[in-house]
Computed example of a mutant assay.
Amino acid sequence: MSLVTGEDLMTYTWVRLRAGIEPLEVRRQLRLKGLDDRQIRDLMQEAYDGRRPVDDVSYSGIANAAITRRALNHPDIQKIPAPKVQLYTWKNFLVPEVCDAVVELIDQRLRDSTTADAFADPKVRTSRTSDIGMLGHDLIMQLDELMAEAIGIHWSYTDVTQGQRYDLDQEYKAHYDYFIPGTREYQVFCQLGGQRTWTFMIYLNDVEEGGGTRFRRLEKTIMPEKGKAVIWNNLNPDGTVNPYTIHHGMKVRKGSKYVITKWFRERGWGDMFPPEYYTNL
């Protein structure tokens, strides 16, 4: 069987890892392309090369990512006045046509939403989730890069993008996006990528009633607006988790709510802060 070039294989591998396809499945696909186990091992090693250990994470860099400076002079970005949390809104981050296209993708692939704690009360999170980042769709990959560029952290330092749909009376009760250190969930879900850092959430439609995002310890509620992003850092500048980021996806009282969510992580490939992300702020 003829093989594509090494460069194309690397692109092939990176795109699938980026789309959230499990490494074992990527290996299986590479075998179908005619690679032997040694070639696959070397390729996967190269793809993962540069993933930083947690000890090398620049938490001050994360806390001073490009979004913090961009907010100083961008008319659509507002820093929420909350000294204990880095919390921003970005109006019109996505145009309506893109929002509508993402909503269509979400509705094509829905499952019941879950939490990291398998024994949690199922009423904690009653929405449905779409693993749109695993589709390998060009639009979602472009959005990955757009959100990463907006914050100023390379897209490889992220989880797979998810979409959520909330219908009447559905909600996600007060929770943290980070994993509590020392817990089983932390050991399981932070083993590869490390702790979650920034959260990037985008409202994809105007909700008829309800559906706000309530940061209860800040006494702040952000209401959905089509195309608006809500962005916050789950960590303090020293890398400790920030309990003031607890938030509640409030019940939809009329209509439906669609959002996409991307979580950034401590580990990724190569440089966390690409030089080009610091230009044109």
Rank of each mutant, 00 (worst) to 15 (best):
G50T: 06
I80G: 02
K123N: 15
P122L: 14
D37Q: 11
I153T: 03
P53K: 07
G34S: 05
L110E: 06
G34C: 02
E149R: 14
H137S: 09
V57C: 10
G61P: 12
L43V: 13
E46A: 09
P81I: 01
K84F: 02
F119Y: 14
K84Y: 00
Q142S: 14
D49A: 10
N92W: 00
R41E: 15
R125V: 04
D121C: 05
N73Q: 11
H137V: 04
E104Q: 15
G61D: 12
T126Y: 00
D49K: 13
A47R: 12
A47G: 08
E145S: 14
D107C: 07
R109Y: 12
L135K: 06
G133K: 12
D100N: 09
I140Y: 01
T114P: 03
D100W: 01
W155C: 10
Q78T: 00
A148S: 14
E145N: 14
W90Y: 11
R69Y: 13
R41A: 15
N92A: 11
M147R: 09
R128A: 04
D76G: 04
A47V: 07
R51V: 12
V85E: 03
L43S: 15
M44A: 03
I132A: 01
A101D: 13
V54L: 12
I80V: 14
G152M: 11
D112H: 08
G61H: 13
D117N: 15
R111D: 06
V57R: 07
K123Y: 06
R31V: 09
D121F: 12
A118W: 09
S130T: 00
I106D: 05
E46N: 03
L94S: 09
K91M: 01
M134R: 07
Q86E: 11
K123H: 14
V85D: 00
L135R: 10
R38W: 04
R38T: 07
R128F: 06
H74A: 07
A150M: 09
L139V: 04
C99K: 09
D138A: 15
V54G: 11
N92D: 10
M141I: 08
V54E: 12
H137E: 01
D112C: 02
A101W: 02
Y59K: 09
I77K: 04
D107W: 13
W155I: 12
S156K: 06
Q108P: 01
